[in-house]
């Protein structure tokens, strides 16, 4: 039905039992196990796509090895992070990117001094 992570108990390779970690995507929590990438957590929990392409199409993981950039999202305020390459840390905040990608607002003094430009 969907992508999913093999439960350790059913896994013939006998991985250790889960060490649950929780990340959020646009505020929705997703739980995986320590050692997964952010893309792995999302796919393992059945989430297939998160980004919106310039033409409005849904994108998730395509190449899985850091080449295609389909899976990029903003992670803890840093934009354009390849989720398939980034190890998940409990509490990571992932925000999807699309035509209205969120702005990284970390650097001091970079917020707009005023409202909208008047020209």
């Amino acid at each position: 039905m969907v992508s999913r992570r093999m439960p350790p108990a059913a896994d013939p390779t006998r991985p250790p039992s889960d060490v649950p970690i929780t990340i959020t995507l646009d505020g929705t929590p997703y739980t995986g196990t320590a050692g997964q990438t952010l893309a792995g957590v999302l796919l393992g929990a059945g989430r297939l796509s998160w980004r919106t392409s310039p033409g409005g199409a849904s994108r998730g993981v395509f190449c899985g090895i850091g080449v295609c950039f389909d899976c990029i999202a903003t992670v803890n305020d840093a934009c354009d992070v390849r989720l398939c390459q980034r190890r998940a840390v409990d509490g990571d905040r992932v925000v999807s990117q699309g035509l209205d990608a969120p702005l990284p607002l970390r650097s001091a003094g970079t917020r707009p001094a005023h409202g909208v430009a008047d020209v």
Partner: peptide
């Protein structure tokens, strides 16, 4: 400089002069 930052809201606040 203040007007310049209204033209470009993300401009540095270290601007000392500007011409449009």
């Amino acid at each position: 400089p203040g007007e310049a930052r209204r033209y470009e809201p993300w401009l540095s606040d270290r601007v000392t002069g500007a011409v449009f």
